[in-house]
């Protein structure tokens, strides 16, 4: 995979938007993104932990996503009910092979503890990638979060 990749804005190329721990709406507003960095926005929606990815998931940004996933899934094996994770990919413009690897790894981790991963509303390039690699056949890809309104239907999520 290839992408136009300007120098990342931070040493690891990732900026985490501030997530208020007790935001009553449970929503966060995307803090905006610069080209080819990765923004990860966390929200809790009922039983689901939703990570919305925006920008580029590649070998320069994947390490930080992996750390974020570690935080989210820490102690997941002991938790009841098993964790449900949704990756919202509507604003993921680019994903390379290391990004694919991260997605496969989190899928395996969740399956191992009886949890679930869904990929929600992947962008066109990501859809193409999931089709080509065959991953669309092993992972759950949906337009909307199960048991909930479409994640893209709220004004906060529109227009990034």
């Amino acid at each position: 995979m290839i992408g136009v990749r300007p120098a990342p804005s931070t040493p690891d190329g990732v900026r985490w938007p501030h997530v208020p721990p007790d935001d009553p709406s449970g929503h966060t507003v995307d803090g905006g993104m610069t080209a080819e960095a990765l923004d990860v926005t966390l929200e809790r929606r009922g039983p689901w932990t939703v990570l919305a990815l925006a920008g580029a998931l590649d070998f320069t940004t994947v390490g930080s996503l992996a750390r974020r996933l570690d935080e989210v899934l820490a102690g997941a094996a002991d938790r009841a009910p098993p964790p449900r994770l949704a990756l919202r990919l509507a604003d993921l413009a680019f994903c390379d092979s290391s990004g694919v690897n991260a997605i496969i790894n989190v899928h395996k981790r969740l399956v191992a503890v009886g949890g679930r991963l869904v990929l929600v509303a992947p962008s066109r390039p990501v859809t193409r990638l999931l089709d080509i690699t065959g991953l669309a056949r092993c992972l759950t890809v949906t337009d909307t979060l199960p048991d909930g309104p479409p994640p893209g239907s709220r004004p906060e999520d529109e227009g990034g």
Partner: peptide, 28 residues
């Protein structure tokens, strides 16, 4: 998928249900 060029102009992709990348152990 591979590309097939026939007669110097007709182009198609050779689609075949892909199995998972080798090494991912996804069992397709």
């Amino acid at each position: 998928p591979p590309v097939l060029i026939r007669g110097g102009r007709w182009v198609t992709t050779l689609n075949c249900l892909p199995a998972h990348p080798m090494g991912t152990d996804l069992d397709l």
